[in-house]
Design a protein around this nucleic acid. Structure first.
Lengths: 218, 218
DNA sequence: GCGCAATTATGCGTGCGCGCATGTTTGTGC
DNA sequence: GCACAAACATGCGCGCACGCATAATTGCGC
């Protein structure tokens, strides 16, 4: 049940994207993110440096993308797929939590690196915006009147809440900043705490979801 | 009734910042934002190009700052100053609306330029993040238990909602993109619509504010 | 006033993001 | 198949953001 036919062109594009992202991650983990030049990444992926910039706006985004790729749709489809006899707020919360725990589960060292380097942190937080569009669509489908504007506000608020949770989670971890050039050192990232923070942050928005759903206050 | 003493040093800093921002705006309005080099701005402000970058991360931020400078604190102090027998949601909403109508009131042509040029739009939207910190502090002061985490989530959600409203307001205006190099042409910006959009977007979050305040549900 | 510490301004060098022009590949109608 | 259009890859060039090292400026204690 693959999604119809991506077409050869599209598949090649994704392959290139993947290759670039993988190369960026590998090199960054090996020698530290500051010692990776764009040319290195491009060469490792077998494309020209200029082409690299057609896929990613910055080195940081290429690295972060390895962790976040597909997460947006993961959240959106989880929301869309869930039975409608649950509170929307809960459905969204669990979808978000799952995607993030899952992410930091599959790339533990990468997560350490991202959380300990300022530019990567920024790119990571910045990427939370990417959920907005798919999530907004999924939400609209489950709202009375398919209220598009309301859905947009809720979606972007979710992204904002996620950002807050991530910031709060990252800060404690970032005890000391590693030297400018240095590969990643092992360090325990408390994933469990992230889930709690996400839930706490999103719970603040729950009343807004309830109201939008038409569930009365309380 | 100036706030204590900023100190000479601090005043000079602000003066430089102001000079840079003013120069950036003036040149951008005169010859179009694409025809303004960083060196021009620095020269017009009487500082070195390198110094310019100690104040603004990009050309765009220098321009946008002229409109947004102080707005963050404006919103925050408005929230802090308001009598506490109003719904927090209403107080915040009106504070936001006032600051934005006021802003586009004082710099009409600048607003046209910002809304019609993609890079400036982005910088403008990006700058909504700056309200978060002061607003968060102001909100915390008015929440039961001074719940800092809740305040942060609410503040960033407000910023997000504002972003959505601005995006929705900008899109209709941006009918056709001006040529790459061109000074600003006159064009009517429907400010009233912005206020409505802001109110609509923020009303979605109102239930969350009520709940955080302890009113509303039960 | 005077000198010392902290802050700020400046110069220089490097890597980068991206617009533009051009060659190359992929998809489509006949 | 074949030609034609659309999408993509690449090379080149220009500003630009920013780290680092250094000089100038400011503030403070005495």
């Amino acid at each position: 049940m693959t999604t119809a036919r991506p077409g050869l062109r599209e598949r090649k594009k994704q392959a290139t994207r993947q290759a670039l992202s993988d190369a960026a991650v590998r090199l960054a983990l090996e020698r530290g993110p500051d010692q990776v030049r764009v040319d290195d990444i491009a060469e490792a992926a077998g494309v020209s440096p200029r082409t690299y910039n057609n896929y990613f706006r910055s080195r940081e985004h290429a690295i972060v993308s390895a962790v976040l790729a597909g997460r947006e749709d993961g959240i959106a489809t989880a929301v869309a797929a869930h039975p409608s006899d649950h509170r929307l707020a809960d459905v969204v919360t669990e979808a978000v939590v799952e995607q993030f725990t899952d992410a930091s589960d599959q790339h533990p060292q990468l997560m350490v690196m991202i959380t300990t380097r300022a530019p990567l942190r920024e790119a990571f937080l910045e990427s939370t915006i990417d959920v907005e569009s798919p999530l907004s669509a999924a939400l609209a489908a489950r709202l009375p009147d398919r209220a598009a504007d309301t859905a947009r506000v809720l979606a972007s608020s979710v992204a904002a809440a996620v950002r807050v949770a991530l910031e709060g989670w990252i800060r404690p971890v970032a005890g000391e900043e590693p030297a400018r050039g240095a590969a990643v050192s092992s360090l325990v990232v408390p994933v469990g705490a992230l889930a709690d923070r996400l839930r706490a942050a999103l719970s603040v928005l729950a009343p807004a979801f309830d109201a939008a759903e038409g569930i009365g206050p309380r």
